[in-house]
Structures are given as structure tokens and as C-alpha cells.
Amino acid sequence: MNIELILFGAFALLTLLSAGTVIFARSPINSAMALVSTFFFMAGIYVLLWAHTVAVMQVLVYAGAIMVLFLFVIMLLNLGESPTRGKPTVARVAGGAATVGLFAVLAIILLKLPAEPATLSAEAQASFGTIATMGQVIFTKWLFPFEAVSLLLLVAMVGAVVVAKSRI
């Protein structure tokens, strides 16, 4: 048993537990807090995959910005616990069955893929997934998508203000 496997097992278990809490918690606040912990544990998994920049952005943008937005809306709307537990209707049972089926199909396909991670030279490993490398790629090869995404965020910001404001 090496340390990487132990860390992966711990993070994976905690991620799945938190994700389960998100789905099954009665009150939206509990769901939101469980989602925050899901994002943190997933950041740990990203680090195990050498994606340090993505892990940092996960914590900053997801666990920071997006979750604050969620909590703000939950508190603004003053939502409490859901009054009754939903009845298991036909649509819900079918939804659960579809989920299990999807996971089975995905597992069959994924188990056929090669499992070995790439072996990198020491030099490539040192620069893999760092902010310097990603910045270089984003601001040269992917400059246009980057600018398009910043425009999208601006439009989303203006749109959110227009939609949420009662009177402009």
C-alpha cells in the first residue's frame, strides 16, 4: 500500500460521502455546506493528478465564489427544510434506475481503457500543470476562447443583475 493510494481512497470516499449528503440532505443549507466539502476533497484529488492550478481554481472559484452565491441565495429566500419527503413516484424510480444503468455502462467502457498514467521525464513532470505552463498555453494558443469566456462572464453578470432585480 503506497501513500498515494491511501490518499486517493480517503479523498474519494469523503468526496462520495459529501456528494451523497448534498443529494439527500433535507435542508438546502446542509446541501450547500456538503457541496463545499465535496469541492475541497475534489481539489485534493486534482493535486494527486498533478493538476495544481486546477486544484487552486477549484478552491478559489467553486468553494469560494460560487458557494457564497448559493449560500447568499438560500439565506435571501429564507429557505427552511423541505416539509415532506417526496413520494417515490414512477418518474423517480425510473430516474434512479436510469442513474444505475448509466453508471454500469460508463464502468464497462472505462474499465476497457488503459489504466497506466503517462510516464513523464523529470523536466516535464516539474512543469506539468503548473500556473506558468497553463498561463503560457492559455495566453497563446487559447487566447480567443479565453477572451470569449471573459465576455461570457460579463454578459452573465449583466444578465444576472437584470433578471434578479425587481425594478430597473
Partner: peptide, 10 residues
């Protein structure tokens, strides 16, 4: 990580 190519990170 599998391909050793950080396009997926972008």
C-alpha cells in the same frame, strides 16, 4: 494525466 498533456487542464 493519462496522456501526459495538460490540454485537459485548460
Amino acid at each position: 494525466r493519462m496522456r501526459g498533456d495538460d490540454l485537459g487542464h485548460v
